[in-house]
């Protein structure tokens, strides 16, 4: 076995892992604030990919420039989904901190969105066109780096950094953190729970939109494209710690590395088994995840 191959796989694994982390970032943010898992997150990614696909196809913009359309559109989408669909459940079950019915509703939303996409866009696999990043590679001796994945990894770090600064440094970010820690105490400080829930859901969905723009240059769009990412994101946020930004990135890189380096040593179908074994191990040994903080509230 050649070390160059391993190095190549490591680079691919880290790049792809960071992009997995980007998808998981939206999920972890929504969980961190609402304390419920959004099972429709993969479908939000799918919607983000279609929005990116059509934004680029219709406007001819570079997919990363199309973010100026994608991010606000997806933010509003998430904001209103929470406001119209999820908030009423929280109100109906206001004595329950983590209403399980929200999980059922988001699962329903997943089916509705995926099938709506099937109805409207058909089952075709669509490749982005025009695609300025198509198949581009950087060469370093014998090592090749995929340009769209490299851009995706950079976009991930920029998004994570931006989110971190937003949460730590701004008035609204502080209000989001306060709500995530104690929503009743936050409301006594003048921080409206529903507004913060809407905004957090909007941001999480906007991040799914960024993921869509990052993925479309090298990943086909189809109605069920979100499902593999949804399951992976869930594993990643549990690995990294639910609610932790950096945990999502580290969890993503771990999964990415196992997936890309693993096949050198075993049949590639086994790598998935390793990912889930690690997932279980973390649940047994450190249920709050690698970067999760135990909190009581």
């Amino acid at each position: 076995m050649d070390l160059v191959f391993i190095a190549q796989d490591c680079i691919n694994g880290v790049l792809m892992g960071l992009i997995y982390g980007l998808v998981a970032l939206g999920l972890t943010l929504i969980f961190g604030v609402l304390k419920v898992i959004n099972f429709a997150h993969g479908s939000f990614l799918m919607v983000g990919m279609y929005v990116a696909y059509w934004a680029v196809t219709l406007s001819g913009l570079h997919p990363y420039l199309a973010l100026v359309i994608i991010v606000p559109a997806m933010f509003l989408f998430g904001y209103w989904i929470q406001n119209l669909l999820i908030r009423p459940i929280f109100i109906a079950e206001k004595n329950v901190r983590e209403p399980i019915t929200v999980i059922i509703v988001t699962t329903g939303l997943w089916y509705v969105l995926d099938n709506l996409a099937l109805l409207v866009f058909g089952p075709d696999y669509r490749a982005l066109a025009p695609n300025p990043l198509k198949g581009q590679m950087l060469e370093f001796g014998e090592i090749f780096i995929s340009v769209p994945k490299l851009y995706g990894a950079i976009a991930t770090l920029a998004t994570a950094g931006g989110l971190y600064l937003f949460l730590q440094r701004t008035r609204l970010g502080r209000a989001v953190r306060a709500t995530s820690l104690d929503r009743e105490a936050a409301s006594l400080m003048g921080i409206g729970q529903w507004k913060i829930f809407n905004i957090a859901f909007g941001i999480g969905t906007a991040v799914a939109g960024i993921s869509g723009a990052v993925l479309t240059p090298f990943y086909n769009v189809y109605p069920t494209v979100g499902i593999p990412f949804d399951i992976k994101s869930f594993v990643i946020v549990v690995l990294g710690g639910l609610g932790s930004i950096w945990g999502a990135l580290v969890g993503g890189v771990i999964v990415g590395l196992i997936e890309s380096v693993g096949p050198n040593f075993m049949a590639s179908t086994w790598t998935e088994g390793i990912v889930y074994a690690l997932f279980l191990l973390v649940l047994f040994v450190k249920p709050s995840g690698l970067f999760g903080q135990k909190q009581d509230w």
Partner: peptide, 13 residues
């Protein structure tokens, strides 16, 4: 402004 019973601080902040 109401300072709640049991302090209710934002523990990790």
């Amino acid at each position: 402004v109401h300072v709640p019973e049991g302090r209710r601080l934002f523990s990790l902040m």
